[in-house]
Simulated scan of single mutants.
Amino acid sequence: MFSLTVRDHMMVAHSFTGEVFGPAQQLHGATFVVDATFSRAELDADNIVVDIGLATDQLKTVLGELNYRNLDDLPEFKGVNTSTEFLARVVADRLAERVHSGSLGEGARGLAEITVTLKESHVAWASYRRSL
């Protein structure tokens, strides 16, 4: 399996519901380093996994929808604990939509899966991997 990873970051505000979250039940900020890894069994006709420029641009666009936002205010997240794990899935699903729409180029239609990792710090991160 071949893979290509592109990286960006986003800053959000949010709060959580539930005792397990302790002080994070209060509104707080989070900065995430975001890695999006695109994988496929064989390289495309150009001997690449995916166009690195398009992958970078599309990750930036997806993150731009969330960056500098209070996630508690977004209707699609109303009443949802926007944990690191949950947000990794949101980003992966939105990138998958862009693969299917052709936004990452025709060669990207041969991708097998996407893994998105959100790093909260140098000691904690979460990932979500999905098939395409």
Results as ranks from 00 to 15, higher is better:
2 F>K: 03
5 T>E: 12
7 R>V: 14
8 D>C: 01
10 M>E: 04
12 V>R: 05
13 A>H: 09
16 F>M: 13
20 V>D: 15
21 F>I: 06
22 G>D: 06
23 P>A: 07
24 A>G: 01
26 Q>V: 09
28 H>L: 10
28 H>I: 07
30 A>F: 09
31 T>F: 09
32 F>V: 03
33 V>H: 07
35 D>I: 02
36 A>G: 11
38 F>D: 04
41 A>L: 15
42 E>D: 15
43 L>I: 04
44 D>I: 07
44 D>E: 08
47 N>A: 14
50 V>M: 03
53 G>P: 04
55 A>C: 11
55 A>Y: 02
57 D>H: 11
57 D>C: 06
57 D>E: 15
57 D>Y: 07
58 Q>K: 06
58 Q>N: 07
60 K>H: 13
60 K>G: 05
60 K>V: 10
63 L>Q: 10
63 L>S: 07
63 L>T: 09
65 E>Q: 14
65 E>Y: 11
65 E>D: 14
66 L>A: 01
67 N>V: 07
67 N>W: 09
69 R>C: 13
70 N>A: 08
73 D>Q: 13
79 G>S: 00
80 V>G: 06
81 N>C: 10
82 T>H: 03
86 F>H: 14
87 L>M: 15
88 A>D: 00
89 R>W: 05
89 R>L: 04
92 A>K: 00
95 L>H: 05
96 A>S: 14
98 R>Y: 03
101 S>Q: 13
102 G>H: 08
103 S>Q: 14
103 S>R: 11
105 G>Q: 05
108 A>S: 12
108 A>K: 04
109 R>D: 14
110 G>A: 14
110 G>V: 01
113 E>T: 12
114 I>C: 00
114 I>H: 00
115 T>K: 10
118 L>A: 04
119 K>V: 01
121 S>M: 00
121 S>R: 03
122 H>V: 14
123 V>Q: 14
124 A>E: 07
124 A>C: 11
125 W>Y: 13
125 W>A: 13
126 A>I: 02
130 R>S: 05
132 L>D: 09
